[in-house]
Design a protein around this nucleic acid. Structure first.
Lengths: 194, 194
DNA sequence: TTTGGCATGTAATCCGTTACATGATTAG
DNA sequence: CTAATCATGTAACGGATTACATGCCAAA
């Protein structure tokens, strides 16, 4: 019986299907549009998970013929809705994600730290890029989805990203100063030779 | 030849061994003490990875007998140091971690959202707990490791955590207000019936 | 003497990513 | 005509977590 967990992914798909039925391909596109900054799925997850959800009667599949092509359109079932809301009600499991940047900085004190500066600079650039996409996404949402009942929730997730990246950019600023000072300290003590 | 990746974990171990040799068990303890807020490892990773590192001559193992017991003490080799600094120099790979809380909030607009408030409150509590451990950890570090050459780097990683949780607490505050307003809007329109 | 911490590992499972494989339709 | 996009999957790999299994040693 395998007792597969198929964690998380199945709920992402159920949640998307609750809004509107769709094909696997379309679900992937919708993830890219709406959840991209905090969720990702690959084909290798989506199709097997849909198959699994169907086997458990959490979604149903109907074949839609457009010309010669068969589209497999999935829609959530009553059972699926129940499963989804049970998950929505269950507590969020705490996470301690691994952070490669911090691991490198942590160790860079003992080795050549010539690269910490680059790592922080690259990270900062990435966060600044994120900030600008959040900003434009937000104004786009307010324009195009004004009055949509779910808009407030979408803005909440965007705001999370914004708070986060703003804080991390401030940390970069601070860290870059610290690293510069450390570098000067390594060179400084021998005063002006040239 | 298998071409195993053994990503990340091996570098965490090499980095720790660079500071000081140790047993697998001890490495786990050191991770818990110093990297805990951005890194975790389980037994199932540590022991096989040490074995693998030894096979690749990146660490060496020596048996230390204390009474009847044999301790396997690992130390980093010259080759291991080279591998470590190559990794430290390599760019940090960007990550888009999945965020269960945001996924739940995103979907909660369409289902019973009675639980969003609880989720945010629990998350806030967790962040506040983290903030206080960061604060006490920082003063402890400044006291007990004053003058240690790596101290500035340790403080940098702590500061990351602090910036992050402070921003997320602010987001919680904002979000809780929004959710309260939404709830009132659902009840409000029918004015005072009782 | 028994409990808790030290110490070392294996096995199973879960899950995500990536590569592979295929073919239809549509826009240029 | 041909490139991009729509569309659906499978297979292999990588690696993290969790459970399982074992036994020493010190302190209460």
């Amino acid at each position: 019986m395998a007792r597969r967990r198929l964690n998380q992914t199945q709920f992402a798909l159920l949640g998307l299907l609750e809004t509107e039925p769709g094909t696997g391909y379309e679900l992937k596109r919708r993830i890219g549009q709406s959840l991209a900054h905090f969720w990702q799925e690959g084909w290798g997850q989506i199709y097997p998970t849909l198959k699994h959800l169907e086997a458990e009667k959490l979604v149903s599949r109907s074949i839609v013929k457009t010309g010669k092509r068969e589209l497999r359109v999935y829609r959530i079932t009553r059972l699926g809705r129940a499963r989804l809301s049970a998950w929505l009600a269950s507590p969020v499991s705490p996470e301690v994600p691994r952070n490669e940047l911090l691991l490198k900085l942590f160790f860079s004190g003992q080795a050549a730290d010539a690269h910490s500066q680059e790592h922080v600079a690259a990270f900062r650039k990435e966060q600044e890029r994120l900030l600008s996409t959040y900003t434009s996404l937000e104004s786009q949402l307010r324009r195009e989805a004004a009055g949509h009942p779910q808009l407030p929730y979408w803005l909440i997730t965007l705001s999370y990203g914004r708070h986060r990246v703003e804080a991390l950019i401030a940390w970069c600023e601070e860290t870059q100063k610290k690293l510069n000072a450390l570098e000067r300290k390594h060179e400084g003590p021998m005063k002006t030779t040239s």
